[in-house]
């Protein structure tokens, strides 16, 4: 059964493709695994009928936009949910994408589900159910925008002792096989030469060993601080189930507490680590 959004997306994709306004349309199609949608690239109006949208459309398609090979095809049409749109705006904000390189089909979204059919954790904190950055808006307005208040989620860890937290995270990072799927899946991890691949000097050890695993996971999270769109792609991609979003949420919370900054849908907003205020809090400084 197709919901309204599916039909509308097909219609827009067809029109854009037949008018030649875009070279490729990135959307969701029927998947082969548990009925879960999968990303598809549509290049002809006919293929547009394969497009769908439903609550299994969890992937962040914006990730594809970080690859030059995709951008080189020409103008790209793309389906985004609010969280995905934050990532897309991030790419524009950080000069990785020009606004005119994309035709954005934003979808209002009541949340998407994980493989187990449960609502994704991130959807419980969604403040962009009705995206505001698009060329086309699909779907009727969703009513409740949720507060991005992670305190309940983080409390369990924040109230642990230092040793407990260390044990918890070591037990997580220990699993890391350094596949870098988190990085590949992240729409904002777009460096062509990641810091972990820099070998003169090799700041982060590359072997799958506690020391390097720790540094890698910390630095990956910190490099996304003030930038992470909260799309959950990293955690979804992690084959060993490291709760990476906990780190991302923690950083988002602290950046809000310290600088009152939150990733939004405004390409002009200033990333927190490129600026400062003379009265920024420095309570930790002697």
């Amino acid at each position: 059964m197709n919901d309204e959004r599916t039909l509308k997306i097909r219609e827009i994709a067809k029109e854009l493709l037949s008018k030649g306004e875009i070279a490729v349309f990135i959307g969701y199609g029927k998947g082969t695994c548990n009925g879960k949608a999968r990303p598809i690239f549509v290049r002809t109006p006919e293929e547009a009928d394969e497009l769908i949208f439903d609550s299994t459309c969890s992937n962040n398609l914006v990730t594809y936009l970080k690859f030059p090979a995709v951008r080189d095809e020409g103008v790209v049409g793309i389906v985004v949910k609010g969280c995905d749109a934050k990532a897309l705006v991030g790419l524009i904000r950080e000069s990785q994408l020009m606004r005119e390189q994309v035709r954005i089909v934003a979808v209002t979204c009541e949340g998407v589900v994980a493989d187990d059919g449960q609502l994704q954790l991130r959807c419980q904190y969604c403040d962009v159910a009705n995206p505001t950055f698009y060329d086309f808006l699909v779907g009727s307005p969703v009513e409740d925008q949720k507060p991005r208040d992670f305190s309940g989620l983080l409390e369990k860890y924040e109230t642990m002792s230092v040793e407990e937290r260390w044990e918890f995270w070591q037990s997580q990072f220990e699993k890391c096989i350094r596949c870098y799927a988190c990085r590949q899946a992240c729409p904002l991890c777009y460096c062509t030469r990641c810091i972990v691949e820099k070998n003169q000097p090799q700041w982060i050890e590359t072997s799958s060993h506690l020391r390097g695993n720790f540094a890698w996971n910390i630095i990956r999270a910190f490099h996304l601080a003030g930038r992470c769109a909260g799309c959950g792609a990293c955690e979804d991609a992690c084959p060993v189930d490291i709760p990476l979003m906990l780190l991302n949420y923690k950083l988002e919370k602290e950046i809000w507490d310290y600088f009152h900054y939150r990733v939004d849908l405004d390409p002009e907003s200033v990333p927190p680590f490129t600026t400062f205020k003379t009265d920024d809090r420095g309570e930790f400084i002697l």
Partner: peptide, 15 residues
């Protein structure tokens, strides 16, 4: 100051 305000919070969070 900005960078370390946040980085130390992250370090604290991971133990």
């Amino acid at each position: 100051r900005r960078k370390f305000a946040i980085f130390r919070k992250l370090l604290e969070f991971v133990g």
